[in-house]
Amino acid sequence: MSCIKEVVLPVEAEEAWEAVTEPDALEAWLADEVELDLREGGAATFVLPGGEQRTAIVEEVSPGERWSFWWWTADAPGSRVTVELAPAVGGTRVRVTESPVGPWASHGRPGGSHARRELAPVLVRAPAAA
């Protein structure tokens, strides 16, 4: 199960890449506050409009083409987001794919913030062996 959304930006790939990876740019459309270490295994935090804070880990980066990350909150299950760029008529297509991590999405998570602290090191190791 994935949610896929696309938009064509009237800019070249290089500019589109900056728009979907630079924290300053991301703060203009994705989240109010963005901290991002854009490399495999890099950590990130997003404070969404409304104040929801999401912790994230970068899974993969192919400069100029694609990057993906996993994000989650203290009390909601995580999901994986892939942002892909492709040439398109009139500019650059941005395709976002978000998939829930698993069907455990329905599980209650007492002590969610505890879980979040525990999860980060596990995930940090994940991309290295890919």
Binding site: K5, E6, V7, V8, L9, P10, V11, E15, A16, A19, V20, A25, A28, W29, L30, G91, V94, V96
Partner: peptide, 8 residues
């Protein structure tokens, strides 16, 4: 993505 498009 609508915000992103407006921005660019």
């Amino acid at each position: 993505l609508a915000r992103l498009q407006r921005l660019t």
